[in-house]
C-alpha cells in the first residue's frame, strides 16, 4: 500500500472537516475522490502534509508513519501536490516556478524534465520569462501541474486540475493523467468536481460528503451507481 489513511480526523478552524477518513492508494493506481464543494476534499489532501495537522488517526506512506512529520519532510518523501487555487508563485517567472518544483530533484535531470514539460504544455515554453501571475487561469493550472511533475513524484496529488479550464484543456489534462499513470507508472490521487471525467480516468473512486467517505468502488461501478449519477453527474452538484 502506498498511501493509507486510517480514522483520520482534522479541524479547519472550528470546523470538524474530516470525520474519520479511511482511504488507501496502491502503487500504480489512479484513485479519485469526488464530492460537492465543502465536503472536505481539499482539506484531506492538505492534511496529508500536516496542513492542518490531523487531530486523530494515522497516515502512512510506503509503510512509514508520516502523520507527525513536518510539511517539508513529507514533501521530500516524493509526494507532490497541485493544490487548490494553483498557488503558483505569482511574482516569479514561469521558469523560476518550474525550478522551484525541481528544488529537490537531481539537477542532472533538469534539462530532460524541462523538455518533457514543454512537450506536455507547449504554452509554458513560450512564456518562460513571463511573470506567472500574469498568466491566464488555465495556463497557471498547467504551470502548477508542471511544477509538481518537476519533482518526479512517486505519488501525485491533484486538487481539481480541470477547474477553470477550457474543454480542450480538460481533455488534455485527463489525457496527461492517463499517460503519467500508464507510461510512467505514476500513482495519482485526484480530486474532482468533474466526476464524469474523473471516474472514467480512475481505477477506483471514493465519494465524500460532510467530511466522511460515503461510498467507494471501482471507477466503473461508481459511474454506474444511481446515487452517484443523481448527485454528481446528472443533477449537477449535490447539496453540501
Amino acid at each position: 500500500m502506498m498511501l493509507q489513511l486510517s480514522g483520520v480526523h482534522a479541524h479547519y478552524g472550528h470546523i470538524h472537516a474530516l470525520r474519520g477518513i479511511d482511504l488507501s492508494v496502491q502503487v500504480g493506481e489512479v484513485v479519485t475522490l469526488i464530492g460537492a464543494n465543502g465536503a472536505g476534499k481539499s482539506t484531506l489532501l492538505m492534511s496529508l502534509f500536516g496542513q492542518p495537522r490531523v487531530s486523530a488517526g494515522r497516515i502512512t506512506f510506503d509503510g512509514e508513519d508520516i502523520t507527525r512529520l513536518p510539511t517539508h519532510i513529507i514533501a521530500r518523501r516524493d509526494i507532490s501536490l497541485v493544490p487548490e487555487g494553483r498557488r503558483i508563485f505569482p511574482r516569479m517567472t514561469v521558469m523560476e516556478n518550474l525550478l522551484m518544483g525541481a528544488v529537490l530533484a537531481d539537477p542532472r535531470n533538469l534539462d530532460v524534465d524541462l523538455k518533457r514539460m514543454y512537450a506536455l504544455f507547449p504554452i509554458l515554453e513560450e512564456r518562460l520569462e513571463q511573470r506567472a501571475g500574469t498568466l491566464s487561469g488555465g495556463e497557471q493550472q498547467m504551470l502548477a501541474i508542471a511544477r509538481a511533475l518537476m519533482a518526479r513524484p512517486k505519488l501525485l496529488l491533484l486538487d481539481e486540475p480541470s477547474l477553470g479550464l477550457a474543454p480542450l484543456y480538460i481533455k488534455k489534462i485527463f489525457q496527461t493523467i492517463r499517460e503519467l499513470n500508464e507510461d510512467h507508472g505514476m500513482t495519482i490521487l485526484l480530486i474532482e468536481q468533474n466526476a464524469h471525467h474523473a471516474l472514467r480516468a480512475a481505477h477506483r473512486g471514493y465519494v465524500m460528503q460532510h467530511g466522511q467517505i460515503t461510498m467507494t468502488g471501482t471507477g466503473r461501478d461508481l459511474l454506474a451507481s444511481a446515487e452517484v449519477r443523481a448527485a454528481y453527474l446528472e443533477g449537477g452538484h449535490a447539496a453540501a
Binding site: F49, Q51, H72, A75, R76, F89, M92, L99, V103, A151
Partner: peptide
C-alpha cells in the same frame, strides 16, 4: 541562485514553499 528563489518563494507563499520540500 536557488537560495534566492527559495527566499522569494517563502515571501510569496510559505505553505506552498513547504509543500515543495523546502525547510521554511
Amino acid at each position: 541562485t536557488s537560495f534566492g528563489r527559495q527566499q522569494r518563494a517563502c515571501e510569496q507563499d510559505r505553505t506552498m514553499t513547504a509543500l515543495l520540500g523546502i525547510n521554511v
